[in-house]
């Protein structure tokens, strides 16, 4: 008899491994957790978050830079067909070459990125990528997945400030998965084209960042650290087919050398 019981053990194992595999493909959690948070609520929370963040951040308040960022933003917004977000771009004094999108269309650019970019187009490319994350609701997706909708909404009803800070940290250090990064790239490239900025600018900035950081194994740059295949992304940007009537419109009012000097 004792020999036959292993058949039963096998049955049990098959049942449970079967359950596991089935539920990998049939997720109980909704595929789109971001739908749990309406855009209005997201913007309310986003405003609270960015306020808290900016309180402890070193905002760069330079009229020249503000003007430049404003122009880039206007150009990109003009390329958006329609958006539910009220985009705000903040420049923060930080030498890291980075930018991130928080909830509700608030995008933070580090001054290191401005210093590093060789043209306003390159900055626009990074911003277009971040706008892609916002429009595709990747940030919400991530935060809802990590923290849950209830906790997130508790911020609105005056939850404890420590938690607000936690969400900020969460959205800054957000690690998107590759599908999301790829989607944001696609969105960004299209947005650049519609904004009359040549999509190759994205390849230019990515390539620079890659060369800068490829020597060090320590990946300081969150913008690229989750992207194991930077080369493929650069290639995609270079191979992006623009419309035949596409014509890049340079930022004629911006004197980029002056901008870099002023940082």
């Amino acid at each position: 008899m004792i020999d036959k019981i292993y058949k039963e053990l096998a049955i049990l194992l098959i049942i449970f491994i079967g359950i596991w595999v089935v539920f990998i493909y049939v997720p109980i959690i909704p595929k789109a957790p971001e739908n749990a948070l309406s855009i209005e609520k997201e913007q309310q929370i986003g405003e609270l978050l960015i306020e808290t963040y900016l309180e402890q951040a070193d905002i760069l308040n330079d009229s020249l830079i503000n003007n430049v960022v404003d122009q880039i933003q206007k150009r990109l917004i003009s390329g958006l067909d329609s958006t539910n977000y009220d985009y705000r771009i903040y420049v923060v004094n930080d030498d890291d070459i980075n930018a991130f999108a928080s909830l509700g269309g608030n995008v933070v650019v580090f001054s290191g990125l401005l210093k590093y970019a060789d043209s306003p187009e390159e900055v626009a490319a990074v911003l277009a990528h971040e706008i892609g994350h916002v429009e595709e609701r990747h940030v919400v997706n991530k935060v809802v997945k990590e923290l849950g909708i209830t906790l997130l909404l508790s911020v609105l009803s005056g939850g404890d400030p420590g938690f607000t800070y936690e969400i900020i940290q969460q959205s800054i250090s957000t690690v998107f998965d590759r599908r999301q990064e790829s989607a944001a790239d696609d969105y960004g490239l299209q947005l650049l084209e519609k904004s009359q900025i040549h999509p190759n600018a994205m390849a230019a900035i990515f390539r620079k960042i890659r060369d800068e950081y490829s020597s060090s194994t320590y990946e300081t740059l969150e913008l690229l650290s989750t992207h194991p295949n930077t080369n493929r992304r650069i290639k995609k940007s270079l191979e992006y087919k623009t419309d035949e009537e596409f014509e890049a419109k340079p930022f004629i009012d911006i004197d980029w050398d002056k901008v870099k000097e002023s940082i």
Partner: peptide, 11 residues
């Protein structure tokens, strides 16, 4: 990993 984790959680 999330999907594998959720499957494991349910199992």
């Amino acid at each position: 990993e999330y999907e594998i984790y959720w499957g494991y959680l349910i199992m």
